[in-house]
Nucleic acid binder design. Structure first.
Lengths: 148, 148
DNA sequence: TATTGTGTTGCAAAGTAGTTGCAACAAGAT
DNA sequence: ATCTTGTTGCAACTACTTTGCAACACAATA
């Protein structure tokens, strides 16, 4: 007997459920887009993609859902050095923080994880007596291909 | 014999002059504000302060001058974790990069310089074959006073 | 010191990204 | 099946920044 169309809820969905946050048709669409994104998406891109799943999703709902996920610490917001305008990009929050290198010429984004980054955070938190919630390390420069 | 009112040109002014960039009355006002700022200022604050020196400075000129200084690599742009809206803040670029910790509750900004940061940049540049132009490390969290 | 050419400015208007108020609606608990 | 409370869509709005263009002024040269 096959399960009904209850697709396995993704990480974000189950996180919200665990926290007693109401799941709506629109939220499910938005969450699944963020969850399966292969690059960093901005609000407009999330809207466009979510509408392919549920054409009724509204721009405002996207912004409100992004806000919710940010407040819940489930996604991180990136600027990617404002290389392509002032918009913000989003990604699922993973265990360890990583940095983003954006090529100022071709716009390519390279992600990099380093223990040195973790160490730096620990040091800073201790030395400055500051309790860190989010750390965003963004680098702009030129990738190998664009350095000619 | 006292020098005329030719105030010693600041660092930014002389940098622009060295690069053959035209100095105007308005630019001088804006540069001096950025140069002597004690905190990080956004475009609107720079405008307000510059107008106290030269009431004729226009909003648009502030934006254009900020753009110029950014392109010349003479100032850095900060978001300060968007704690107080979406505006950008600016600061004179100094030799070594430093990080900015913004308190999510009171908005206080702590600056911190660390050799670990320099080391991290070197490592990343090497390992990713990426030539770094700007590195921005912004941290959000709670300062000692706000941690209760 | 007057002239000149090119870069800069101010204004108004438009653009982009994100937010808010509110009535209608729907999730999920009972 | 009902009900409560959180969520949605719409339209209008806010904040911040950019653009087009004619007038202007810096600073190089004569």
């Amino acid at each position: 007997m096959p399960l009904p169309q209850t697709e396995t809820p993704g990480f974000l969905q189950s996180q919200l459920m665990d926290r007693g946050i109401r799941l709506t048709r629109q939220r499910r669409a938005i969450l699944s887009i963020i969850e399966t994104a292969k690059q960093h998406l901005d609000a407009a891109q999330i809207l466009r993609k979510a509408r392919r799943i549920d054409p009724q999703v509204d721009r405002v709902t996207v912004y409100r859902t992004i806000g919710l996920l940010k407040r819940q610490g489930l996604i991180d917001e990136l600027d990617l050095m404002h290389v392509q305008g002032e918009r913000h990009f989003y990604e699922r929050r993973t265990g360890r923080d990583h940095m983003h290198m954006t090529c100022l010429r071709c716009g390519k984004v390279i992600e990099f994880e380093s223990q040195l980054f973790e160490k730096l955070k620990t040091t800073v938190a201790k030395e400055c007596n500051f309790s860190i919630v989010v750390a965003r390390l963004e680098i702009g420069g030129y990738c190998k291909a664009c350095r000619t």
